[in-house]
Design a protein around this nucleic acid. Structure first.
Length: 538
RNA sequence: GGUCGGUUCGUCUAACGGUUAGGACACAAGAUUUUCAUUCUUGUAAUAGGAGUUCGAUUCUCCUACCGACUACCA
């Protein structure tokens, strides 16, 4: 039998990184089994629809490289840009279309009514106000009101009302619901791929609403089970927040007579706040300084902006990698995996049962690893738009060599400018603490002498014709030998003179090597900066 | 409150009843270096507590504590 799994988000806001992880695990499982990964939109809550959320989900998954096999259609715009949309039309690729539950609306009612006919569900006519009143009363008495085997005998529903009255209410009112009739005194035995066997007594469960006349829509529970069945889902991999409704879902499969084809379930533990308590939420990211969402999101109602991994400079490879290892491990000590590499090693039985706290430092480390794997040329392309100076002034080769020089000093490309700006522009000011420390009369006179030394000697500098080898063996060493040789012969303190020069070149005394700087900026600019520095600090 | 789930270094985690409880991130120290960073070496650091089963429990059972999810005509 073909493995068919689905990711079924609700478009009520931006997709959370925990949601992306759920999608990722579904994707990996499907790919490994040679099966299908299906995307389905669960938008049965007409109240909470958020414009743009669906597009956000699609774009997030595409950014991560998690492309569904079923449920989406490719859209190619005139300029050749590829995006995706939820499939509404049946096709060979999308045999179960539409994949948006709001478009499947008409289909669910008959399933709910089928359950009523067979005695597994009933019509309920209690108004929302009546129910919330009952809940409030129960709460006041320090009890919990639940609609169950006991209370249903005292409430307004098709089990207590005469048939004519039920018929009349169905026809003349539109606030009724269909509720599932949880069987009495039974034990539901469940099996979870991650957690193993579990048991729940049916008497602790409540009669959940399956279908609402008010908007003619099913609730999650009905729509989810019906669609999973119709779409022939074989494994349901979803978040642990669904664990409490698993007994209901088992009971629903049984009531429909679909036990033979019921999917197997795997419940993923939650992503927790890095500090404190509770599951990771939108607020935590703002508070602790990291994104909770894959992409930047602007709330269409409030205009509030939430940062995204993509915009913060993370590579999708790094994001996918860190997500994969948050709650799962391969059982080996390997930590770096591309999406493709994850496919063969992934397994549901190595998913961790307990919740995982997200750790920003480790996330940055992952990005650093992928940054280091990039070629200087690739990094140069990413870096160019971030240059805060006339970008046309610097060649691709220049940028590539700069990137090669600095790539191990950064976690993100967006740190490159701060690290290397001395190679593009002269410092505008000098760190006053460093000036105090290093601009002693002695150091300044040494700097003056080195200035003369540079002026009188041939100093190799970067040209587009040079290769990385030239840089290493010829230029850098030559400059370095000239400077260090001279300093040593004079028996000066290396750290003092060099830092004075660095101060003049970069504005402070931390960072790049002196010979590297001279090589990249060239003799003329080097002399200019030393002279400017001497003048400013005299 | 009720139901269900979880608990190994600060964090992510490994250890199909037998290990000096391993790795990674972070942190610290040392080495290298003209500074910073890199790199290399080393180090600090954990089985929530209590019973039981067993020759032997991180691992199995129970109790306690703590954490979490759920408890809507939301998903």
């Amino acid at each position: 039998m073909e493995t068919r799994v689905r990711f079924a988000p609700s478009p009520t806001g931006p997709l959370h990184m925990g949601g992306v992880r759920t999608a990722l695990y579904n994707y990996l499982f499907a790919k490994q089994k040679g099966g299908k990964f299906i995307l389905r939109i669960e938008d049965t809550d007409s109240q909470r629809f958020v414009p743009g959320a669906e597009e956000y989900i699609l774009e997030s998954l595409a950014w991560c490289g998690i492309v569904p096999d079923e449920g989406i259609e490719k859209v190619e715009s005139a300029d050749g840009k590829v995006t995706y949309k939820i499939a509404s039309q049946k096709s060979e690729k999308n045999p179960h279309a539409p994949y948006r539950q709001s478009e499947r609306k008409s289909l669910y009612r008959k399933y709910a009514e089928q359950l009523v006919e067979n005695g597994y569900a009933y019509y309920a006519f209690d108004s929302a106000e009546e129910l919330s009143k009952l809940r409030a009363e129960a709460e006041a008495a320090k009890q919990t009101f639940i609609y169950n085997y006991e209370s249903r005998t005292r409430l307004k529903n098709s089990l207590t009302l005469p048939p004519e009255e039920v018929k009349r209410l169905i026809e003349t009112t539109d606030t009724w619901t269909i509720r599932f009739k949880i069987p009495q005194d039974q034990t539901v035995k469940m099996d979870d791929l991650v957690r193993g066997e579990m048991e729940v007594e049916t008497n602790t469960l409540d009669d959940k609403v399956l279908w609402k006349a008010a908007d003619q829509l099913p609730t999650y529970h009905l729509a989810n089970i019906v669609d999973d069945h119709l779409m022939e889902i074989t494994e349901v991999i979803r978040g642990a927040e669904w664990l409490p409704s698993l007994p209901l879902h088992y009971l629903l499969y049984k009531a429909f007579g679909w036990e033979d084809t019921m999917p197997r379930f795997a419940h993923l533990s939650l992503l927790l706040k890095p500090d404190g308590k509770g599951k990771l939420s939108k607020r935590d990211g703002d508070r602790l300084g990291f994104p909770v969402f894959p992409l930047k999101w602007t709330n269409p109602e409030t205009g509030e902006v939430s940062r995204g991994y993509r915009e913060d400079g993370y590579y999708p490879e790094a994001f996918v990698n860190l997500l994969a290892l948050l709650g799962w491990n391969p059982g080996t000590e390997q930590e770096l995996f591309t999406l493709e590499e994850l496919v063969p090693v992934f397994s549901l039985d190595r998913i961790i049962k307990s919740g995982a706290k997200f750790n920003v430092d480790k996330a940055k480390w992952f990005n650093e690893q992928y940054l280091r794997k990039r070629s200087p040329e690739q990094l140069a392309r990413e870096f160019r738009p971030m240059l805060k100076t006339e970008p046309g002034k610097f060649s691709d080769k220049y940028l590539a060599q700069v990137c090669a020089l600095i790539k191990e000093r950064a976690h993100f490309v967006n740190e490159f400018w701060d690290i290397s700006k001395a190679l593009f522009v002269a410092p505008e000011e000098y760190d006053q603490n460093d000036v105090k420390k290093f601009c002693t009369p002695e150091n300044l006179s040494h700097a003056k002498e080195l200035c003369n030394l540079i002026a009188e000697n041939e100093i190799p500098s970067f040209t587009d014709a040079q290769t990385a080898e030239d840089y290493k063996s010829l230029c850098c060493e030559k400059i370095e030998e000239l400077l260090t040789g001279y300093i040593k012969s004079k028996e000066w303190k290396m750290g003092q003179v060099m830092n004075t020069l660095r101060l003049f070149f970069t504005g402070n005394t931390r960072g790049l090597g002196i010979s590297d700087i001279i090589y990249f900026i060239g003799k003329e600019e080097a002399l200019k900066r030393i002279e400017a520095g001497l003048k400013a600090t005299e």
